[in-house]
């Protein structure tokens, strides 16, 4: 049987030090575990096909980074903040209510009570419900390494399903989000109302001035190998008066920017039908809250 090791470092430095020492082994950084543990259990229920290398499970729960803070410009969300903590945070409610919208539609209470925002990001699922809002909020991810940390924009972070630009000796510690002037909204289409993964999800951030769109950031999830920013559609919206018919027309063009696949939740064809609709709804809501 595969060998498993478990470590629970007490600080970020200890964690980074541990990672330095593990060079040829497989490592799993464990936060809430709601994605990893079911996969592990499935592996343990199967007839092993080959001898797998030992797996080091490193629990991050004791390494800090579990608070939501602010300064005059930014909100800082620790990577180990649970989805429930975001949902219940007054700070988030005041500055980033779109995240609460997204959290409320992610899985169910019992999952959100343990799942973390950092875990949802690092899992890098194209369907993750937190990623589209973070894209339109233009979030920055702080990655800590043994020689210091660097900051990467959410839009440059994801490279494919389950893969990101992070180095295997780095750890995501904080999500930084600028307090914007505009409003954002999140819309999700799942197969059920609760406890469901996105067939398509959409997020929109809009800054308005006298009925004219001053700035727009749009994102769609579960329609490509990663959640995607819809730059072309954004540029079509900026400078235009935001009228429902115009938004509808602009959104219909978003199919050019996505590349959905058939999977167990929906067909590519269906996703192409609903992606413009979800985006339109998100934009309309982001505008209507002005």
């Amino acid at each position: 049987m595969r060998e498993y090791f478990y470590e629970a470092p007490e600080s970020l430095d200890e964690l980074l030090g541990l990672l330095q020492g593990l060079n040829d082994e497989e490592v799993k950084l464990l936060a809430g575990g709601t994605d990893f543990v079911p996969k592990l259990s499935k592996e343990l229920d199967e007839i092993p096909k080959e001898q797998k290398p030992p797996l080091h499970i490193i629990y991050m729960g004791n390494t800090g980074n579990n608070e939501i803070k602010e300064d005059s410009d930014n909100v800082y969300i620790g990577a180990l903040v649970t989805l429930t903590e975001i949902e219940e945070s007054n700070l988030i409610k005041q500055h980033l209510p779109v995240l609460i919208q997204a959290m409320e539609e992610t899985a169910g209470h019992t999952v959100r009570n343990v799942a973390t925002i950092g875990g949802n990001i690092m899992n890098a699922s194209p369907a993750a419900d937190s990623i589209t809002p973070l894209l339109v909020l233009d979030a920055q991810f702080v990655l800590a390494g043994i020689d210091g940390s660097r900051t990467i924009a959410a839009k440059d972070f994801f490279t494919g399903p389950g893969s990101t630009v992070i180095d295997d000796k780095e750890v995501l510690t904080t999500i930084i989000i600028k307090k914007g002037k505009g409003k954002a909204a999140f819309k999700k289409l799942g197969r059920r109302k609760a406890e469901t993964l996105s067939v398509v999800n959409a997020a929109a951030y809009i800054e308005m001035d006298n009925g004219i769109c001053k700035a727009a950031r749009l994102a769609l999830g579960a329609v490509a190998p990663t959640a995607v920013r819809c730059y072309q559609t954004e540029s079509k919206l900026v400078g235009k008066p935001v009228k429902p018919e115009l938004i509808k027309e602009i959104c219909s063009g978003v199919v050019e920017e996505i590349n959905p696949i058939d999977d167990i939740r929906a067909t590519a064809w269906y996703r192409k039908q609903v992606a413009p609709v979800m985006l339109e709804r998100a934009i309309n809501q982001a505008c209507s809250e002005e």
């Binding site: 049987m1 343990l44 229920d45 199967e46 007839i47 092993p48 096909k49």
Partner: peptide, 10 residues
């Protein structure tokens, strides 16, 4: 146990 049974099946 389970893992031994699965190993045997392999």
């Amino acid at each position: 146990d389970k893992s031994t049974a699965l190993k045997a099946l392999s």
